[in-house]
Design a protein around this nucleic acid. Structure first.
Lengths: 151, 151
DNA sequence: ATTACTGCAAAGGCTTTGCATTGTA
DNA sequence: TACAATGCAAAGCCTTTGCAGTAAT
């Protein structure tokens, strides 16, 4: 996906931000992911390619990309304290965090977008970003718990 | 609503937790609210009645109440870092945080519950809690921005 | 009399920030 | 050359936790 990276760098340029090796590397790391990663994970992947990159730079780049709409930032249950990021080129995506095994179940649905559209229509607000998160049990753990009679 | 408080205290008792003046006070504070408050706000309200109560106690009680299902804990945009709490006796409630004036617009809808039910049906997961939050502009700011041609 | 709860202060986890330096445009 | 971006380390913000003392059952 060099496309996405090129476009992102064009956006940077065009908005007066500089294209640095660190920013490019982070875009590459992000482009290689299919779901959201937290800053620490992104840092680890980037650090493997360039040991001199710092966590602060990762955070600064992710914040910048989020502001520019290049990245989708999100918070996941149950902590909700850790932010996770992903290139903003895909469809709506949410997560259910399993209380038993910790898995994050990916949820692809357009329901939140519909919800946002309805709010715009009925309440007169405007929505710039929306986020939904679920806590519960993944399919495997749900099945296991039912087998054990605990659910 | 002494009802709700009595019921909550009965739950505490019945689950082997002690009913302390601090816990009762916090229930009273919560019962007097119609929307979610953060820990600091709850602490301030409680502290006004009993200056000896501590923030740690507030956090511990809110965590306990949340575990017992007595309180609905939620995270609001754009920070998502601050938790907000409310007695869990009402219908589904979400917020849109206005980027311009900071207002939290209350959103009453059952959409998230429907979404959760659909997940259960289609994915085989189980959902114990769900949360949605929106960032954007409140009706007033939306109107103002449109007037200024900025939206 | 037990055992849980409280207040205090310190620690924790994640993110941001100040500052001197480096690098892009 | 000018100004933004980086790395480092320290600070910040909210929440949790250890401990000794206190109170509920």
């Amino acid at each position: 996906m060099p496309h996405i990276i090129d476009e992102a760098e064009a956006t940077l340029h065009q908005r007066g931000f500089k294209v640095t090796p660190q920013r490019t590397l982070l875009l590459q790391v992000l482009a290689a992911q299919s779901s959201h990663l937290d800053a620490e994970e992104i840092y680890a992947l980037a650090h493997a390619q360039d040991a001199s990159i710092s966590l602060a730079t990762v955070y600064r780049a992710l914040n910048l990309y989020t502001e520019l709409g290049l990245v989708d930032r999100r918070y996941v249950e149950p902590e909700h304290r850790r932010e996770v990021y992903r290139l903003a080129d895909g469809p709506e995506q949410h997560y259910l965090t399993c209380l038993r095994c910790g898995t994050r179940v990916l949820i692809a649905t357009d329901l939140l977008n519909s919800m946002a559209r309805e709010l715009v229509r009925r309440k007169g607000v405007s929505v710039t970003s929306a986020c939904a998160c679920f806590t519960g049990y993944c399919p495997d753990c749900t099945a296991a718990l039912k087998r054990e009679g605990k659910l």
